[in-house]
């Protein structure tokens, strides 16, 4: 039997969740016995080359490109997992929710303490740039998500236990200390 195929992506996240995946340490050798990877920053495969079994997504949706990637994952993966607080509830990027987008952009490009030489008061608006959404959305408010792994980042053991349970079909028993929101 061929191995299940996993794809991963980071949307509006900090890559911390992906780091936590790597934090399973030498179990990564067992992991590659269990699954194959397709589209993922870890493999550097940029587009889906085959249908996948499990899609793992870090980060919420803050712009139009995030939504496109998310929908692409939903189309190409049988199971989608929201990995981490940003995917589940927008996380720290969602602290801008409730502040009008214009105000955020003006702070970033005109008023912020790191702004330099923007005398013409330009807010980048090239058509090649993804459009910023009115707020940062949790993934499950955009597409159907099958499983949720909380944490900022989710503990490596939680990710490991969840992926192994999913691939082997064994029941997932989560010890108290593995569910954290920070």
């Amino acid at each position: 039997m061929s191995k299940p195929i996993v794809a991963t992506a980071s949307l509006a996240g900090c890559f911390g969740c992906h780091m936590s995946v790597l934090d399973i340490d030498d179990r990564i050798l067992q992991l590659i016995e269990l699954v194959d990877f397709n589209k993922s920053p870890i493999t550097d495969i940029k587009t889906f080359t085959q249908p996948c079994d499990i899609g793992i997504i870090e980060g919420g949706c803050c712009n139009s490109e995030n939504i496109e990637v998310l929908k692409d994952f939903r189309k190409n993966c049988k199971i989608l997992i929201s990995l981490g607080e940003c995917a589940i509830m927008g996380g720290l990027p969602a602290m801008r929710n409730g502040i009008p987008v214009r105000e955020c952009l003006e702070e970033a490009y005109f008023g912020g303490v790191t702004v330099r030489d923007n005398t013409e008061r330009i807010i980048p608006n090239d058509e090649e740039l993804p459009i910023i959404l009115d707020k940062v959305y949790p993934l499950h408010e955009i597409v159907k998500i099958d499983y949720f792994l909380p944490g900022c980042p989710p503990r490596a053991d939680l990710i490991w236990e969840a992926v192994v349970a999913l691939v082997t079909g064994n029941e997932l028993k989560i010890p108290y200390e593995l569910i954290k929101f920070d």
Binding site: F148, L149, C152
Partner: peptide, 26 residues
Amino acid sequence: NHFCPSCEKSGDCDLQGLGYRYQMMV
């Protein structure tokens, strides 16, 4: 607006504690 990762009460918060106890995943 509960952004636990940036909250000082995290770890000592009763609401969060209940989230853990009742295994709130989402």
